[in-house]
Design a protein around this nucleic acid. Structure first.
Length: 671
DNA sequence: GGTGAGCTTCTTTAC
DNA sequence: GAAGCTCACC
């Protein structure tokens, strides 16, 4: 445990009670967590299998797993839990599925599946945004940890009562599908722990020490889950930084950091204020920027590092120009300064911004890795294949059935499916069973009945194979036999696109090959001889896995995805007003969160930071003129080096800004 | 009754 | 620039 500063050492060694570590960016927070895990094991206080470290993103979990593996050698780390909140909840449900009224092989519904269910329950003809809004209300209730009954009790207005009633119907629909949604992965374990007196002690016995990363990002349900697991003893270490709270939009409640002190009066608080990551100039940028936000826990982040390079600000013509400059700079630095590819990161506000960057990087043959959140699992061909797998594992999963039967297209359309749904409802069967029922099929047109029967047949054959095959082989088999591959080939205009999309399916199969995702504790489920149960377990984990390990590649990701990571060289592209801060966020009044997001991005950089903005930004086909981000005005001018700024361009921008200010002023007097 | 062409609309962010 | 939706055609 060498090389820890006094505060870090205190945070690592303090195991007498609940501890909150207020850790500034780059203050060695992950280090503290990994050291603490090592300390807990080495001191003999806890075996690894009784320790759980909880993170927010899969990326962060993987990062931590790697670091722990480096720090704790051999089988000492056996059974250690390092997972996201959602994976932990999933594991809980897999163990306690019976208490939750779920059967083995239950599905996890994503936002699309949820939307389908809500749409089905909403008044007929409800507009998309209404359906979307209702889904949001249900999600909100769940994030607060409310059950349908509790939501009904809490409802004050007619609208809320209506929403609560919908929530109840939505939940019973999910139940019949033998499915849960993402929010349920937290909410249901919480509900079980709070209501079942036997359950909580058992899980507290199993997880005796908790370490929680990014505590400021917990929502109400997650926080309560944490309290349930930690119990009154409060054997937990929470690590957080209110300046890096960037998930309020999905219900995160940074005030949980303060609530901790109320819930655990014995709470000890340690502040980590020495930054070990950034050069002094980068840190000054971060500090002066974030000083524009109000602060409940003021901290003064300092660094021993020298000034280092100035922070570059690039004014670019448009997205393409920006991307080319970034790619060229990376190429140059890689050769001239021998900086390995994986020490570069390009960060952006929205995932769609990666396109021009990819193009430019490909042109210069710069190897890169795009970690676009769930982008991979959202690919149409991947979702199709997954739907087939879901129906295989869970015959009750109507949402998956509906997608699978439509891909590839067979002569079954909306009308047939509506009829089938009616018949299924009358006979209390899931769609996949109804489609398999000869007497039911007789009530449909022969053409439709044939299509359904054919689908059932393929499904049967696949299911037979599933008992003999390893899941990965089953995926490969399925892609062929389902006709998905043939349909894909027919659908693609050229061979190159076909091969690219086929590659996604290959990658999907590979995922089932290795138990690299998830916890070690789950590994036993993925070995063995294959079969439906294994498939289901892997499938559930898969929905939560991050795309394969990046090698020595430049990393492209959203600012949200970059949290917890660090790189020698960081580019933040698209620093335009409207992109960052995002105009919708500004309209919603979340400027402070946008500022924190920028702060998170800046503090990822160790040595070099480039902030670039385009004058013209491609926005669905059209180009739009945008001004540089208002956040530039909040950075210390002395630490910035504006290069490539076109004076003419700046004049235009100044004028536009003047015009905008006038407009604001006029609006003020008008309103 | 099913399909596909062409229309609109949309894009934060993630588990 | 894709994914969804409407409408006309098979």
């Amino acid at each position: 445990m060498s090389g820890l500063n006094p505060s870090q050492r205190l945070a690592v060694e303090y195991t007498d009670g609940p501890l909150l570590v207020l850790a500034g960016a780059g203050s060695g927070k992950t280090r503290v967590i990994t050291e603490k895990i090592a300390h807990l094991i080495a001191s003999g206080r806890n075996e690894a299998r009784h320790i759980a470290a909880i993170t927010f993103t899969n990326k962060a979990a993987r990062e931590m797993r790697e670091r722990v593996a480096r720090r704790v050698k051999g089988d000492k780390a056996e059974g250690l839990t390092i997972s996201t909140f959602h994976s932990l909840g999933l594991r809980f449900l897999q163990v306690e599925h019976a208490r939750a009224g779920l059967r083995r092989g239950f599905s996890i519904f994503d936002a699309d599946d949820q939307l389908g269910v809500v749409k089905d329950l909403a008044p007929p003809g409800a507009k998309k945004d209404v359906v979307e809004g209702l889904r949001g209300l249900i999600s909100k209730a769940k994030n607060l940890g409310l059950s349908p009954d509790q939501a009904a009790e809490a409802a004050r207005s007619a609208r809320e009562r209506e929403a609560a009633a919908l929530y109840a119907r939505y939940q019973s629909r999910l139940q019949t599908f033998n499915a849960v949604d993402f929010d349920d992965l937290i909410r249901i374990p919480l509900e079980l722990l709070e209501t079942d007196a036997e359950l909580a002690p058992a899980w507290r016995e199993r997880l005796r020490y908790l370490l929680v990363d990014e505590c400021q990002d917990t929502n109400g349900a997650q926080y309560r889950l944490l309290k349930q697991l930690a119990g009154p003893r409060g054997a937990l270490t929470c690590v957080g930084d209110d300046d890096q709270s960037i998930y309020a939009w999905r219900g995160a409640n940074p005030e949980n950091l303060d609530t901790l002190a109320t819930d655990y009066p014995a709470l000890k608080v340690v502040k980590l204020e020495q930054n070990y990551r950034c050069s002094a100039r980068i840190l000054r940028c971060a500090n002066t920027l974030i000083a524009n936000n109000p602060h409940a826990h003021p901290k003064k982040l300092w660094s021993q590092h020298g000034d280092g390079e100035a922070v570059r600000v690039w004014a670019c013509k448009d997205n393409a120009h920006e991307a080319e400059r970034v790619a060229a700079e990376i190429s140059y630095l890689h050769v001239a300064k021998e900086i390995p590819w994986n020490e570069f990161a390009i960060l952006f506000r929205g995932n769609h911004q990666s396109r021009p960057l990819e193009k430019a990087l490909q042109l210069l043959r710069v190897p890169y890795h795009l970690s676009g959140g769930t982008a991979f699992l959202e690919r149409a061909e991947v979702k199709d294949a997954l739907s087939w797998l879901r129906v295989l594992a869970n015959p009750d999963d109507d949402a998956a059935f509906l997608r699978a039967i439509a891909s590839p297209k067979r002569e079954v359309g909306a009308t047939t499916l509506e009829k089938l749904a009616l018949l299924a409802q009358q006979s209390h069967q899931p769609l996949s069973k109804a489609a398999d029922n000869i007497s039911l099929l007789k009530q449909l047109t022969p053409r439709a009945a044939n299509g359904l029967a054919e689908f059932s047949q393929v499904l049967h054959r696949l299911r037979e194979n599933a008992t003999r095959m390893a899941p990965a082989d089953l995926v490969r088999d399925l892609v062929e036999r389902s006709g998905l591959l043939a349909a894909l080939r027919a659908q693609c205009k050229d061979n190159a696109t076909f091969l690219r999309r086929k590659e996604n399916l290959d990658e999907l199969a590979q995922w089932f090959d290795s138990p690299r995702h998830g916890n070690r504790a789950d590994a036993h489920a993925s070995r063995g001889t294959g079969g439906i149960a294994d498939l289901a377990a892997q499938l559930a984990l898969l929905t939560h896995a991050d795309r394969g390990e990046p090698g020595d590649q430049v990393r492209l990701m959203s600012l949200h995805g970059a949290k917890g990571l660090e790189f020698r060289v960081v580019f933040i592209v698209g620093c335009e007003d409207g992109t960052l801060p995002h105009e919708q966020a500004v309209a919603e009044g979340s400027l402070e969160e946008e500022r924190r997001l920028f702060y998170v991005g800046i503090t990822r950089a160790k040595e070099r930071l480039v902030l670039s903005h385009g004058a013209q930004v491609a926005r669905w086909g059209e180009t739009q003129n945008l001004l540089p981000s208002r956040f530039f005005a909040e950075l210390p001018a002395g630490d910035l080096q504006r290069d490539g700024a076109d004076p003419e361009l700046e004049q235009v921008q100044k004028k536009e800004r003047g015009r905008a200010a006038l407009k604001d002023l006029a609006a003020f007097f008008d309103g």
